[in-house]
Simulated assay, not measured.
Amino acid sequence: MTPAPLVLLDLDGTLTDSYPGIAASARVAFTALGLPVPDDTALRAFVGPPLVDAFPRFSVPPERVPEAVAAYRGYFRTTGMWENSVYDGVPEQLTTLRDAGVRLAVATSKPEVFAGPICERFGLAPLLEGVFGAPPDHVPSSKATVVAAALDALRPAGAVLMVGDREHDVHGARANGVDCLGVAWGYAQPGELLGAGALDVVDHVDGLAAAVLAALDRPAAPGARPGGAGTVRSADRG
Rank of each mutant, 00 (worst) to 15 (best):
A100Q: 08
A148G: 13
L154D: 09
E120W: 11
A159P: 12
A198T: 04
A198C: 09
V106A: 08
A209R: 01
G191Y: 07
R44N: 09
G207K: 08
L193Q: 00
R77M: 13
G172H: 03
R155W: 12
L97N: 02
T95L: 15
R64E: 11
G186H: 00
P61M: 12
D88N: 13
L124V: 07
A210F: 05
A173P: 03
P111N: 09
Q93P: 05
R57I: 13
M81E: 08
A184R: 03
T2I: 06
G230M: 01
G238I: 08
E192I: 07
P56A: 13
R64Q: 14
L33S: 10
A215Y: 00
D165G: 07
R77F: 12
D200Q: 07
R27E: 10
R155G: 14
S141W: 12
A24M: 07
D39L: 07
F58P: 00
G74I: 02
A175D: 14
V52T: 10
L104F: 12
P219F: 06
V178A: 06
A188D: 00
A229T: 15
W185M: 11
V205W: 05
A153Q: 11
R98G: 13
G207I: 14
Y87G: 07
D203S: 15
G207D: 12
V201K: 01
N84I: 11
L51I: 06
G228V: 01
R103H: 14
P50G: 10
G182L: 03
G228C: 05
P136T: 09
R225M: 14
A198K: 00
V69I: 15
E120I: 14
D200G: 13
G172E: 03
E67T: 15
F114V: 04
G186D: 04
D40E: 15
P66Y: 10
G74Q: 10
P222A: 10
A100K: 08
G195C: 14
Q189V: 08
T79N: 03
G172Q: 01
E83F: 05
V212C: 04
Y87L: 13
P38S: 09
A149C: 12
G197A: 13
P117C: 11
A105K: 10
R27I: 07
A220H: 00
R174W: 11
C119Y: 00
D179V: 12
K110L: 10
D169E: 06
L181Y: 02
D203I: 03
A54F: 05
P219C: 04
R237H: 08
P117S: 15
A68P: 02
D203P: 03
G191P: 06
E192D: 08
H168E: 04
R64V: 10
G195S: 06
V202T: 09
G133D: 06
L15M: 09
G101Y: 06
Y19V: 01
L199A: 08
R166S: 02
P36G: 12
P117Y: 13
L193K: 00
D236H: 09
V102C: 04
D12P: 03
H138A: 14
Y87W: 11
G197D: 04
A229H: 06
A70Y: 08
G164R: 00
W82P: 00
G164T: 01
Y72K: 02
T145V: 12
E192G: 02
V170R: 00
